[in-house]
Nucleic acid binder design. Structure first.
Lengths: 217, 217
DNA sequence: ATTGCTAAAATTGTCGACAATCTGTTGATC
DNA sequence: GATCAACAGATTGTCGACAATTTTAGCAAT
């Protein structure tokens, strides 16, 4: 695990990030530096360090001499993000078909089996809200072995995607369908068919995006 | 232009970024906060603000309690970056074929005509290191009308790409060839053929990457 | 009531100093 | 001579205070 939280600003960053993603801090709301620094028991300098990183994750927006705002979730932005995500994870998937070891592929298969056996999938509940290494997408991305791509997707885009998932809700019949799609993707990778794997991943993500977009009505 | 340099850390950020991209600060070299802050006549807090943004551009790497280093240029990283860039600009190009107005397309055509008439292209000189290429790719990217994608490419990835171009050198017969490729791309966009435009852009970028990679020998 | 100006309050940007951590060297022990 | 511990030096992380800018509040004029 590289989930290293060495410094104070690391901890504040992680805490606030979670608060934003989970909706504890409302989308679009203004962020007061004095208030937040007091709440988290750190100085403003430390808080600002954390805010900088939140901006890198596109979770907040800054204006000079004005301040920070939590981003607002809109259908338009969702569309933009999922277009980017589709292209990048599609690429990751194609690369993974070449670069993943047989061992890594088997581990992902075992992961999916495990998910199935816990039956949370069948109950259509919270399959999507898993985090970190437990996440299917996480492993495929890392399987690309492209560290720049990994950083982009896991550190800069992932929490933003997660924010839409969590706040817009993600459940119902889509869940078990998503599971089947995951299975098809890992099979394509196991067959070393990068082109197919990329196509399937792009479709999978597009379907996921459409599912969230539907919640905006 | 939104090239707004409002605050002191903005200016320091832009200055250091240029120094890194142009190679004035050697790749892989360690960055001393006290030294740089003195050199740029600002406090360490202001400098660190700038360093944070440089990290967002992937131009420097940080380790907790250790410090910053300028990234090192390697063939492997070049490959990684160009894989990502190819996917993203390919996407941008496809979107541009749908979203650019006829006016915007004609402006890009006029831009290329202008580049040709200045004859710098025919002389095979520095077409790549100037705003010529910058403008072309910039305009296509902005033509995608996807603000997240625009930000990713123009603010987070572009200077890194430019660093490879500038420091590894970029000239010779590749230049006039690149110009022809630009022409083919804008024609595909004008024909509203997004699929072709994406394909051409991906090839164009791959060729550009290979050209740089050759310099590593 | 609305508009425009002025001043006060609040917020962000910047600074210099202190604390925590790492790095490199010295010297002791085996 | 090699390994390791302790120490000194330097570097980064953090803090509280001040400066610059923006926002708000109040008042005056139309």
């Amino acid at each position: 695990m590289e989930n290293e939280v060495k410094t104070a600003s690391d901890k504040v960053f992680v805490d606030i990030r979670q608060a934003i993603v989970e909706g504890e801090i409302a989308q679009g709301s203004k962020i007061s530096e004095p208030e937040l620094s007091k709440k988290h028991q750190v100085s403003r300098a430390t808080l600002r360090e954390a805010l900088n990183r939140l901006e890198s994750c596109h979770l907040i927006e800054r204006k000079a001499n004005v301040g920070c705002r939590v981003i607002s979730l809109t259908p338009e932005k969702l569309d933009e993000i999922y277009q980017v995500r589709s292209a990048l994870e599609g690429l990751a998937c194609r690369l993974a078909a070449t670069n993943m070891t047989d061992d890594e592929i088997n581990q992902v298969k075992a992961l999916l089996d495990d998910h199935l056996s816990t039956q949370r999938v069948r109950q259509g509940e919270s399959y999507y809200q898993e985090e970190g290494d437990l996440d299917f997408h996480y492993r495929i991305i890392k399987g690309s072995k492209n560290s720049h791509l990994i950083n982009l997707l896991c550190n800069e885009l992932y929490q933003l995607v997660r924010m839409y998932r969590v706040q817009m809700g993600m459940n119902g019949p889509r869940v078990s369908k998503a599971f089947d799609e995951h299975l098809a993707i890992i099979n394509a990778i196991a067959a070393r068919d990068g082109e197919l794997a990329e196509l399937l991943m792009k479709r999978h993500i597009a379907a996921s995006g459409n599912n969230i977009e539907r919640k905006f009505q």
